[in-house]
Design a protein around this nucleic acid. Structure first.
Lengths: 342, 342
DNA sequence: TAACGCGAAAATAACGTTTTCTCAAAGCAT
DNA sequence: ATGCTTTGAGAAAACGTTATTTTCGCGTTA
């Protein structure tokens, strides 16, 4: 150790290496960047100095100078929710030599702005964002300055960006169809608040299903907050009328959990409605009955997102592209029960 | 717009603002940093220029110059697993004016090294890391150079760092005690591979419980990989002897899922063993029977981690500190069933 | 032998900030 | 009016890199 236990050892810099090797600063840089024009003897000397000093380049300074960071940021509402997607995206990005950093927006519009802007100011080359609010005009100058933006799960309003979306409408239709095919005529929908894009798409698709079957829409579609109280209220509304719903479509996984919780506590097992939930989740198959769900294809979405991101990094001027990824129904039981004969 | 639709608009810089306002570069800096020595008229002029140009400081350059970033990195094995903890940590950090970026290490030792090192090279002030491998000597120079390191869930071997740990041994004892108190005398443990710190602590604690009760340890403790096949194998081993286990302790949530999956598929409902699982999970209460678990106090752990982090940022020379956070048993049913009378 | 290339290393100018240092003008007491 | 402190703005030097330009030694050729 050279000066190991000094009170506080500054990180060695290129200048230190140059001094140690007795060469010019720029020669060190050339060695570090494997410039072929550097002589063998010099390269050796510099490398030795690098090793003894334990030098490693300061990525921050590199990025400032180079103007590119090969780093992309992920701004999602909550880290866990989109997790299979993030994991897949991260793996793929890493394989392409990109670094990925994630931050959560806590479902807060202002926080999203702060997070994304901070990423841009740090020289991130791109951001994958699960957009929240209705206004994303703050992105325009960043995009003009070269930030690659890809929206996931919902499109961005304002500047036109790439986007990866799930086929929400098709998923809802599959759920509805599955229940209808098993004899249900009173099917209700409970989901997230329609201020959220996906929730709106799903609720709208569900209304369209009802209308297509010539069934009344009123009282059967219950979007709203995903708090337990609201969900319980909606459930009571659809289950305790004179002609109660015999089947439910849940708009997202939070709603599904809320519905299951309510039913377990308040409704006798043999009187529970059939259910199809949007979004798969662990243990879905171990519930009683096992949950039938509409599953999003997270790996495919992650792959598409990475594809769009790298394409845009390579060619910033290309037109924005939207990719819709199919969903599929996983029948496990809860959606295949017929109506309870009251 | 000044030069909006130009092919590619460079981000405005302090120099641009200075030119626009007709002042010196340093004056702009003083205005941005609210230096009180700047005259009112100048401040106004600069502010106007900032607004019209849409200037925002380049955090990268700021950090390079200041030598500090008020950013801390989180390197965890998987984003979802530690999520409640991360969410809480992020919230707290944000409230303290810190920015948090997360990256996953994919349970890969080399990847952890790359991620953490990259964070250090980018000028992150601290890292919260869920350590993987046995050797963390690579951290020593970084810590010497001022990187604040806090370990979560497991301690770091090599350089001495702060750490936040769950009280694994106490948790296992509670689980064992609960089952023993309900009449079980044949209790088995299935958990993660002992190369992982927490898994080793838990398996050891379980062995200690058996010994304390004067029970044989052999064949009742099954640490190993958490793949379904291995778990099933272990289960068959403990359940199909002549005096089979009547109760199980699962070492982590992955194991719990594997065990539940196996039992659901292969063992008739009325012959299933009692179970207590380490780590709580969503829907645990909706299973049949509802799962009794040892729950870690994620908010408390996050809080402790943030506490340690800020303390170290403020006082880098302080001695390393370990915090052990208590766990608690949540009795829901699966752990309160008596032995099956065969 | 002087001019000329040429290869390879050194010097230097950025990148966008912050901070230290200068220095002019203004204020004020003598 | 003179000298001395304030005040506040501008100039310039960092921070650790990379990219461009200069310099220099040396073998070729006219």
């Amino acid at each position: 150790m050279t000066k190991a236990s000094g009170r506080r050892s500054r990180r060695p810099t290129m200048v230190d290496v140059a001094r140690e090797a007795g060469v010019a600063l720029s020669t060190v840089s050339r060695v570090v960047n494997a410039d072929p024009t550097v002589g063998a003897e010099f390269a050796r000397r510099v490398q030795t100095a690098i090793d003894t000093l334990g030098y490693r380049p300061d990525e921050q300074a590199q990025q400032l100078r180079r103007g590119t960071s090969r780093t992309i940021g992920v701004a999602v509402r909550e880290m866990s929710a989109r997790n299979p997607l993030m994991a897949e995206f991260e793996r793929g990005a890493y394989a392409s030599g990109l670094t990925v950093f994630a931050a959560s927006t806590a479902d807060n519009e202002e926080r999203e702005r702060a997070v994304v802007l901070s990423m841009a100011r740090r020289g991130f080359d791109g951001v994958l964002v699960e957009p929240i609010g209705p206004d994303h005009s703050y992105l325009a100058p960043e995009m003009a300055a070269g930030l690659a933006v890809v929206a996931i799960d919902r499109p961005i309003t304002g500047p036109a960006t790439d986007a990866v979306l799930a086929d929400n409408a098709a998923g809802i239709r599959m759920a509805y169809r599955q229940l209808a095919d098993h004899g249900h005529t009173r099917i209700a929908y409970i989901g997230d608040h329609e201020r959220i894009f996906t929730a709106r798409e799903r609720a709208d698709a569900f209304r369209a299903c009802l209308r297509a079957d010539g069934r009344p829409v009123t009282d059967m579609v219950h979007p709203g907050e995903t708090e337990q109280a609201r969900i319980s209220e909606a459930l009571r509304a659809v289950l305790s009328t004179e002609s109660p719903a015999t089947a439910l479509v849940c708009g997202n996984v939070t709603t599904t959990f809320g519905v299951l919780t309510h039913l377990a506590a308040e409704v006798p097992r043999d009187q529970r409605p059939a259910i199809v939930g949007f979004d798969d989740f662990p243990l879905a198959g171990l519930l009683d009955p096992p949950m039938t769900v509409i599953a999003q294809d997270s790996p495919a979405m992650a792959h598409a997102a990475l594809e769009l991101m790298t394409a845009r990094l390579a060619e910033p001027e290309r037109g924005p592209e939207w990719v819709t990824v199919p969903v599929r129904l996983i029948a496990r039981g809860s959606g295949e029960r017929g109506p309870v004969v009251a």
